[in-house]
Simulated scan of single mutants.
Amino acid sequence: MHCGIDGNEANVEHKVGVSWYVYKLLQQFAKTASKDDSYTIFLREKPRKDMPNESEYFHYAVIPGRTAWSQLFLPLALYIQHRDIDVFFSPAHYAPRFCPVPIVVTLHDLSYFYYPNDFLKSDLLKLEHWTRYSVKRAAHVIVVSETTKKDAITQYDLCDKNITVIPNGFEPPNLKLIISHATTPYFVYVGTLQPRKNLETLLYAFADIHARYPKYTLRIVGKKGWMFDHVFCIVESLKLTDCVLFTGYVEEKEKYSIIANATALMLPGLYEGFGLPMLEAFYARVPVIAAYAGALPEIGEDMVVYANPIDHIDLSEKMIDVIEHGNIEARIASAYNLVKKYTWERTAKEIHTVLKNASKH
Rank of each mutant, 00 (worst) to 15 (best):
V286W: 00
T217E: 15
E236C: 08
L193R: 01
Y271V: 01
W226G: 11
D160V: 07
G275N: 06
I310K: 06
L158A: 09
R132Q: 15
K318Q: 06
K239T: 11
R137W: 03
G225L: 08
K223P: 02
T353W: 07
G65Q: 07
E9Y: 03
V143I: 04
F89T: 07
T67A: 10
K176S: 10
A348S: 15
D302K: 12
R48D: 08
F73Q: 14
Y156M: 07
L203R: 10
L78G: 13
L26R: 06
G17N: 08
K49S: 15
R346T: 11
I332Y: 04
E324G: 05
I323K: 05
E200N: 14
P102V: 01
N162A: 13
P185M: 10
N117Q: 14
T247C: 09
P173W: 00
A295S: 15
L76K: 11
P96N: 08
N117A: 07
T148P: 00
Y256P: 01
Y186F: 09
I5L: 06
W20F: 13
K215I: 02
F246P: 11
T353M: 09
A77D: 11
A10P: 01
L110K: 06
V104K: 07
L218K: 09
Y94C: 11
Y115C: 09
N198R: 06
L72N: 02
